[in-house]
């Protein structure tokens, strides 16, 4: 980690990168920008996934479309990985500084007026991170031993021989434990975002008296919708609303 203490003697001698990576505000910009990028992805990803509520062919065609444009997908993946790396690095480096800034705790350590979401950003973020790893292993890499069913998802094929994403999701979410994991994780993501999105506008200085409250409320509403959207998929599968066509 780059130390905060090795600024050059005169601030004017610093270049933009050292400002960004060393100062607390700079690292907050990185965190906010990467967070917002991830947030945008989360929305896009959700819109893609919600196609599950349409006919199986729709989502399978979407999956195939992504496969056919693998260069673009890899571009996005690298971008997202970069964002996650930056986001996690700043999160950990700032959190370490923050911890160090209060070496002796109060008798009652609950800070006044701070919302639960704001107090638990690192926790919710880390859990979401491990969930993302799991999610990648589960549906992207399709490792057999994490999916809780007796077969590998690689074997699921549509009539025309492409990968059957629809069936994979349905079979995957028929495992109540897995579904529960997903619901909890998107719940935590919602908590993370309900504070994070508004905060990132604050961190980037993109708020003012008029827009501030609107942004804060919108960030809560959108986060909640994200939760509803993502959670609806495993719940719909579990309750049988989605997946009739897939054999039990």
């Amino acid at each position: 980690m780059i130390s905060r203490h090795d600024f050059e003697a005169d601030a004017s001698g610093m270049n933009i990168l050292s400002y960004l990576f060393k100062s607390s505000l700079g690292r907050k910009y990185i965190m906010a920008a990467s967070g917002l990028a991830l947030f945008a992805f989360v929305i896009g990803h959700l819109l893609g996934n919600l196609q599950i509520f349409l006919a199986p062919e729709v989502i399978n065609r979407y999956a195939q479309f992504l496969k056919d444009n693998i260069e673009l997908v890899w571009g996005a993946r690298i971008g997202l990985l970069g964002c996650i790396a930056l986001h996690i690095w700043t999160a950990i480096s700032l959190s370490a500084d923050n911890k160090a800034a209060r070496p002796v705790a109060y008798a009652d350590a609950t800070p006044p007026a701070a919302s639960m979401a704001s107090r638990t950003m690192l926790m919710s973020g880390l859990i979401v991170f491990f969930f993302i790893l799991y999610h990648l292993l589960h549906f992207t890499v399709q490792v057999e031993w994490v999916n809780g069913v007796e077969k590998t998802f690689h074997s699921l094929k549509t009539a025309d021989g492409h990968h059957d994403v629809y069936s994979m999701v349905v079979i995957g979410f028929r495992q109540p434990l897995v579904a529960l994991c997903y619901v909890i994780a998107v719940g935590l993501l919602c908590l993370h975002l309900s504070h994070g999105v508004g905060a990132s506008f604050q961190s980037l200085g993109l708020k003012n008296k008029a827009w501030g409250p609107v942004i804060d409320t919108a960030s809560k509403v959108v986060s909640f919708l994200i939760f509803v959207g993502y959670a609806s998929i495993p719940l719909a599968v579990l309750t049988g609303i989605v997946g009739d066509s897939v054999a039990r």
């Binding site: 700032l94 500084d97 504070h195 604050q202």
Partner: peptide, 8 residues
């Protein structure tokens, strides 16, 4: 420390 926008 840095700001987490908790509002405390």
């Amino acid at each position: 420390g840095a700001c987490t926008v908790t509002g405390s």
